[in-house]
Amino acid sequence: MNHDDVIIATLQKEGKPLKSSEIAEIASTDKKEIEKSIKKLVAEGKIYSPKRCFYDLK
């Protein structure tokens, strides 16, 4: 499972906006890798930031 899939699965499971550090902690993954994937997913329109530093599914 790549980092994009991990982020999407974590957001679906939690059902609420999360910080990148929370996603990394829940997924037991490196925060820097999660942040790179988050930027890509936001650019692709798959996730968005409802408020500063939080991310959620569209």
Rank of each mutant, 00 (worst) to 15 (best):
M1K: 14
N2A: 12
N2K: 14
N2G: 14
H3Y: 14
D4T: 12
D5F: 14
V6P: 03
V6T: 14
V6Y: 12
V6K: 15
I7K: 09
I7T: 04
I7W: 12
I7H: 05
I7F: 08
I8C: 08
I8S: 04
I8N: 04
T10G: 06
L11D: 10
L11Y: 05
Q12F: 08
Q12G: 00
E14C: 07
E14G: 02
G15M: 09
K16R: 15
P17A: 10
P17K: 03
L18R: 06
L18P: 10
L18G: 11
K19T: 15
K19R: 15
S20M: 03
I23V: 15
A24P: 03
A27W: 13
A27E: 13
S28Y: 05
D30W: 05
K31D: 13
K32G: 12
E33F: 05
E33I: 11
E33K: 12
I34R: 09
K36I: 07
I38G: 01
K39G: 00
K40F: 01
L41T: 10
L41Q: 02
L41M: 01
L41A: 03
L41I: 00
L41H: 07
V42A: 06
V42L: 04
E44V: 00
K46A: 07
K46L: 14
I47Y: 09
Y48S: 07
Y48G: 01
Y48C: 03
S49K: 10
S49D: 00
S49W: 01
S49E: 13
P50W: 13
P50H: 15
P50E: 04
P50A: 11
K51L: 03
R52F: 04
R52H: 06
C53V: 01
C53A: 10
Y55Q: 01
Y55W: 10
Y55P: 01
Y55K: 02
D56V: 00
D56Y: 13
D56Q: 06
D56H: 07
D56F: 14
L57H: 02
L57C: 09
L57E: 08
K58A: 08
K58M: 06
K58Y: 10
